[in-house]
C-alpha cells in the first residue's frame, strides 16, 4: 500500500470517527426532540450492520455454504440472547466444522 495514501486515509478515518463521537459529547447539553431525526438515529446502527453483513459475509470465508451455516448459527444463538463473544466464536466454529466435513467426508 502506498504510504502517502495510507496516512491521508488514516487521518480521514480516525479524524472523522473521533469528531463524530467527541463533538456531540462535548457540545450537546439538551435532548433532541425532532422525532424524524430521533427515529433515523435509532435505526441507522442496525441498518448499517445488516447491510455490512449481508451478503458480504457469505463470501468472507471462501466457502459460501460454510459461511451460510455459520451465519445461521450466529442468528440462532443471538436470538437466544447469547453474548457477542460466544456468538462470534460459535459462528467461526461452525464454519470450521462444515469446511472439514466438506473436505474429508463429502
Amino acid at each position: 500500500m502506498n504510504n502517502t495514501n495510507f496516512w491521508i486515509y488514516l487521518l480521514i478515518m480516525a479524524g472523522s470517527t473521533y469528531l463524530i463521537r467527541a463533538i456531540p459529547f462535548a457540545a450537546v447539553q439538551k435532548r433532541i426532540n425532532n422525532q424524524f431525526i430521533k427515529s433515523f438515529l435509532y435505526y441507522i446502527p442496525y441498518t448499517v450492520l445488516a447491510a455490512m453483513t449481508f451478503p458480504s459475509a457469505l463470501y468472507a470465508t471462501g466457502n459460501v455454504i460454510a459461511a451460510a451455516a455459520g451465519l445461521f448459527v450466529a442468528v440462532i444463538f443471538a436470538i437466544k440472547g447469547k453474548g457477542l463473544t460466544l456468538v462470534a466464536a460459535l459462528s467461526c466454529l461452525t464454519v470450521l466444522i462444515v469446511e472439514i466435513m466438506m473436505k474429508y467426508i463429502a
Binding site: 435505526y43 453483513t53 468472507a60 451465519l71 450466529a74 462470534a88 466464536a89 469446511e99
Partner: peptide
C-alpha cells in the same frame, strides 16, 4: 483463518438480532 473471518460478522449479528426479535418494526427495517 477462513473460519475466523466470520467472527466480526457474528458480532454484528449478535448486536442486531436480539433487538430485531424484540421489535417487529426494527426487524422490518433491518
Amino acid at each position: 483463518m477462513n473460519a475466523l473471518c466470520l467472527a466480526i460478522y457474528g458480532m454484528f449479528i449478535a448486536i442486531v438480532a436480539p433487538k430485531a426479535k424484540e421489535s417487529i418494526k426494527l426487524f422490518a427495517v433491518v
